[in-house]
Simulated assay, not measured.
Amino acid sequence: MKRETICLIIACLISFILTAGIMNWRMEIVHAELSDTQQSLAKEVFRFHVIAESDSANDQRIKLKVRDAVLKYMKAHMTRAERRDAKATKAWTLTHKKELTDTADKILKKEKVSYRAKAEVTTCYFPDKRYGDIIFPEGNYEALRIVLGKGNGHNWWCVLYPNLCFTNATCAVVDEDGKKELKEALSAEEYEMVTATSEFKIKWFFFGKDHAKESD
């Protein structure tokens, strides 16, 4: 009886180790597949990033004023076609960096601070960012980045394309127009990733990438 108990315990331990190993292997595959989809998503998205001089209340307030001024300038000077295409949005931004810097600097001068702004188009790492029931997964994305002074303060960001910045400047949530814009801009798989991230991961874990595509 004692021998049977020992054998049963050993069998349970082996089963547990094998199951844990399979689950770990499966999760590694899921993370790799999600990473591939995030990289694909990143090609369809262009973000906006403003970094404050410091975390003081005044510098954080100025950061938001710069945000509003830059978005207002872009909305007034970009054509509808330029706002509805990722490449066109990036191209417009690249050719108007000086104007965007000047727009930010006007706010800084008005606020009578000594530091100035620097605008650039670059690839930045972003953590997960939720806008209501929309979540953009962590990863590297191209962005218009405006650094105020030394850029040592907390930052603010939104999505320029699809143009969520323009449909909702605070970007606390994505309204129906924003969701429609997202759906038109992204593939079905990418759209599912940003609208149902947890369910998306579970589906990929149990059924794999091919099943996720079939169910879109």
Rank of each mutant, 00 (worst) to 15 (best):
E99C: 03
D36R: 15
E120Q: 02
L108Q: 02
T95L: 15
A76R: 05
T79F: 00
C124V: 15
D128A: 10
E44L: 14
W92N: 02
Q60I: 09
T79I: 07
D128F: 12
T37E: 11
H49S: 14
L41G: 03
R47H: 12
H96P: 04
F126L: 04
R83W: 03
T101V: 14
M78K: 00
H96M: 09
K43F: 03
K129M: 06
R83Y: 11
A88N: 05
M78Y: 01
V113F: 05
I51W: 02
A117I: 00
I135H: 13
T79W: 11
K98N: 08
A91R: 11
W92E: 00
F46G: 02
D105R: 04
E120P: 05
N24P: 01
Y115S: 01
R84C: 07
V50C: 00
D55W: 07
K110F: 10
E111K: 15
Y115C: 06
E82K: 07
T93P: 11
P137I: 04
A32L: 08
D128M: 09
K43W: 01
R80V: 14
K63Q: 12
T89D: 00
F46E: 00
E82A: 10
S56P: 09
K118Q: 13
N24K: 15
A32S: 14
R61I: 08
E28N: 15
F48V: 00
Y131H: 11
A57S: 11
H49I: 04
V113G: 07
K87G: 02
I134Q: 07
A104M: 02
A69S: 14
F48W: 07
I51C: 03
A57M: 15
H96C: 08
K98T: 14
K43T: 13
A104Y: 03
N58P: 07
A69R: 14
L100E: 05
A104K: 07
T93W: 05
S114V: 06
T89N: 00
E99D: 15
K109R: 15
K109A: 06
H31N: 13
Y115P: 06
M74T: 00
H96I: 12
D55R: 08
N58H: 12
D36C: 06
K72R: 07
V30I: 10
S114Q: 15
A104W: 02
D36Q: 13
K63I: 03
E111D: 06
V70G: 01
W92D: 02
F126K: 03
I29S: 15
